[in-house]
Structure formats: structure tokens, C-alpha cells
Simulated scan of single mutants.
Amino acid sequence: MPTPDQGSLDARILALLPTDGTPVLNRVMRAMLARACERPVSSEAYFSARDRLLADRSIGRLRGQGGQVFLATEAEALPAPPADRSADEPDAWPEAKLMGPLRAYLEGPFRAGLDLSDALCLVQDTSTIGRGQWSRPDFVLVTAMRFRLLPGAQVDVHSFELKTEAGGTVQAVHEALAQTRFTHFGHLVWHLPTGSKAETRLAEIEAHCDAHGIGLIRLRDPKRAESGEILVDPKRRATLPAVIDGFLESRLSAKHRAALEAAVRGAQA
């Protein structure tokens, strides 16, 4: 009996995965595929399709207990408050133009502030990787520090949601919060120049970030990396290692994955 072609299996896996990002066991997905295709799906065919989707970062996976795969989408369990963007606010610095300054801040002052001189620190633009704003941070920063006496390594994953001057809203806080499903720390980065009309919302945004354990970084002048100011420190999430591992596997570049693996194992990248 012929088996489904590669493209058909890839598309069916994406269609069958829950849109809210709930993981599905590999064996369950194979059974679902068999029913959908009305024919058996071999282990080789399934895992080949899964690996292709992992390679193009359409899905993530969780290791252990049979293995699971998940689809990240815009669906979010937390109720999102309505956006309160003001159409007449200035947009001299659109988000795409702010990406470079944010990278400079993360690789410079923010990294220095972590005081991890001996640790690996990776910064990656993830703004176009994944599905949906609720699971696609603009940047991810990963640190890996090996202990001197104890075995193993401490890995911390930070996610950053970048917003323009007009985009600093309560909804933006919830976007940053949603992304912590896959990370240890979540941050909202807001381009808010001194004297901006949007400063009237600052106290409210600070309060919401503090209530939800989300870090708030104010970027006053994108031309100066040192103008970044941490207004609220994030709280560390007890995100499962398997969830973070699957997220990083689907988001990091091959070069960064190799560097992280080498750092965790104590080898030279």
C-alpha cells in the first residue's frame, strides 16, 4: 500500500496539532495521521516529516516519555486586554528600525549587567521564527554557565518583546508574558523617549509588568545603547527544561545550538 507523500504528511501534522500549542505524543500523532490518511504511516515516514518541520522551525518538540511535538500559534490562554494604541502618536522609529539598537543594547549593557564574564551568552533575532505574536519574541538571549565545583551547567533563557513608542500598551505586557511559556525570563522593551506623550502610560505599564513578573526596559535613545534603562526586574519562571529545550531547538541557529551544546558539556565550541 502506498504511503502519503512528504508534503502531505508535513501539512497534515501541522493541521492536526492543537492550535493552542498543546504538545502531542509522537505515537498519538502517528495514530492521528494514520486515521487522517486512511492508511498506516511508518515510523520512518513520520519522523522524517517531523524532522523536516523541526528543521524549518514550524514546530517544536519535548523530549522524554515518548517525545512530543507542539505548534506555537497566536492562541493564548490568558485573556488579552484590548489594544490602546494611539494612531496619532509618532512613529519615527518603526519596530524594524529598532531591532539593530536593541541587539546592540542586549550584546552590550544588558549582557554586562548580568555579570557573567565566564559564561556563554548568545543573542538571536527570533522575530520571524515561529507562528503567531504570542509565541514569537523579537529576541532571545541565552546564557550558559558551568559550575566550578558542582557538575552541570546553569542555563537561563530570556525573551524580549520590542514595542515602538506608540506600541507600549497593556496588551504588549501580555504578549511578553505569553512568551514566558518557553523561557525563564520575559522582558518588554519599550522605545519611550524623554518627553514623549506616551509617558502618561508608563506608570500603568510598570504596574502590569511588576504584577506579572515581566521585566520592563525603557529604550530612551536608540542611537545610544547605554540609554537602555531597566525599570522592572523580571521574575524567574519555573518553565520545564523539556519545554525550553524544544523551544531552543526550533529557534536557535545551527551555530548557536552547537555553541550552547558545547558550553553545557564543557567543551570548546
Rank of each mutant, 00 (worst) to 15 (best):
P23I: 03
Y46G: 05
L16N: 07
A31R: 13
G108D: 11
A254R: 08
E206N: 03
F139W: 06
A83V: 11
I13W: 06
T73N: 06
T128Q: 14
E229R: 02
T22K: 03
G66V: 01
A225R: 02
L106A: 08
F110E: 12
E76R: 13
M99G: 05
R136P: 04
A11D: 08
D10V: 08
A49P: 07
V264Y: 06
P151D: 14
F182M: 09
G132M: 06
G168T: 01
D221W: 00
L188K: 06
D125R: 07
T22H: 02
D5T: 05
L252M: 04
D233G: 00
V173G: 03
L25E: 15
Q65W: 11
M145A: 15
I129N: 03
A112C: 10
P4I: 09
E74G: 15
L231V: 04
A242Y: 09
P2E: 08
E206G: 05
L16T: 10
H187V: 00
S196A: 15
R39V: 06
E76V: 14
A267V: 09
K255F: 13
E229S: 02
L192W: 01
V69P: 09
A34I: 01
M99R: 15
G66C: 03
R103N: 03
L260A: 12
A31L: 15
S127T: 11
A203D: 15
D51V: 07
L102N: 09
L98F: 04
Q268D: 15
P18Q: 08
K255M: 11
L54E: 14
E74H: 11
L248T: 00
I214R: 10
A45Q: 03
V28F: 07
A144S: 13
L248A: 02
E204D: 15
I230W: 04
E165Q: 13
S196P: 02
M32I: 01
P234G: 12
L248M: 00
E89Y: 14
F185K: 05
H174G: 09
A242L: 08
H184Y: 01
